[in-house]
Design a protein around this nucleic acid. Structure first.
Length: 236
DNA sequence: CGGTTTTGACCGGCGC
DNA sequence: GCGCCGGTCAAAACCG
């Protein structure tokens, strides 16, 4: 049997007890050890799948929460517009989402980097910085250097979930050419299409799961949790 | 010296 | 009306 999902050859030599030569004894022992190893690997693999499913579920829950929050803001805005409060709400802070607003995710290799510089080919002038309630890392506000003729703004803030991820929100469209070609390196990559974002999310989940698997403390905690669960189960 | 960044103050919307 | 919060302003500091 070859387990391709793990990429490991788990072939076990068939055990036929024909004679008791030292060579056959060794083979028997190896087969038994192979069997044990295969069982252990299966257990670890199952637990890994459970963990990965859990991480996936958490990510989905978070996504749903964010979507619901955005939807609620949009509904409030729509309701405000139909109840005669058009002027104030149109110019207020509750803007209709995705109206000239682009959200871009960029990966940074150094999560401790506080500069939050995002090379996108345009020149920007920082005009403010604020710590928001939902995120401990500050949000930086930029205007296009061609202002006031170009009114494009952008907000840059680290993702609350992943310090490696910068969330850039562009508002408006430039009425001029960019200064330079956009860099196409992997450390500062744009993720615009939904498919790209989905793939990136999957890669993130995989990365999180891998880092957890490499963490001896986590393995130890996991083993403790499992063994305590088994003990509790045995008691009942 | 001119452009950019920093940072506290201010403003307007919103919920209670 | 008041407090909270996100967004913007503007003076001072900084830098090339």
């Amino acid at each position: 049997m070859v387990d391709t999902s793990l990429g490991i050859d788990l072939n076990v030599t068939p055990f036929h007890k024909t004679d008791d030569t030292p060579m056959n004894n060794d083979l028997t022992r190896m087969s038994l050890e192979n069997k044990k190893l295969r069982e252990k690997l299966t257990t670890v693999w199952d637990k890994n799948n459970t963990l990965q499913n859990h991480v996936n579920k958490l990510m989905q829950d978070h996504e749903l929460l964010v979507n619901n929050l955005n939807k609620r803001k949009f509904v409030e805005c729509e309701e405000g517009n139909t109840s005669g409060r058009t002027e104030t709400l149109h110019q207020g802070s509750l803007k209709r989402p995705n109206e000239g607003v682009t959200r871009v995710y960029r990966r940074t290799d150094d999560p401790s980097d506080k500069s939050m510089v995002v090379k996108d080919g345009y020149q920007w002038r920082k005009y403010g910085q604020k710590v928001t309630r939902d995120n401990p890392s500050p949000r930086a506000y930029y205007k296009c250097s061609f202002a006031p003729s170009c009114t494009v703004k952008k907000k840059v803030q680290k993702s609350v979930d992943d310090a490696h991820l910068l969330v850039v929100i562009y508002e408006g469209v430039h009425n001029h050419e960019s200064m330079e070609k956009e860099p196409d390196d992997t450390s500062n990559r744009r993720l615009n299409s939904p498919m790209e974002m989905l793939k990136y999310d999957e890669a993130l989940v995989e990365q999180m799961a891998n880092s957890l698997r490499r963490n001896p403390d986590f393995i130890e905690d996991l083993a403790d949790a499992i063994s305590s669960n088994i003990l509790e189960y045995d008691l009942f």
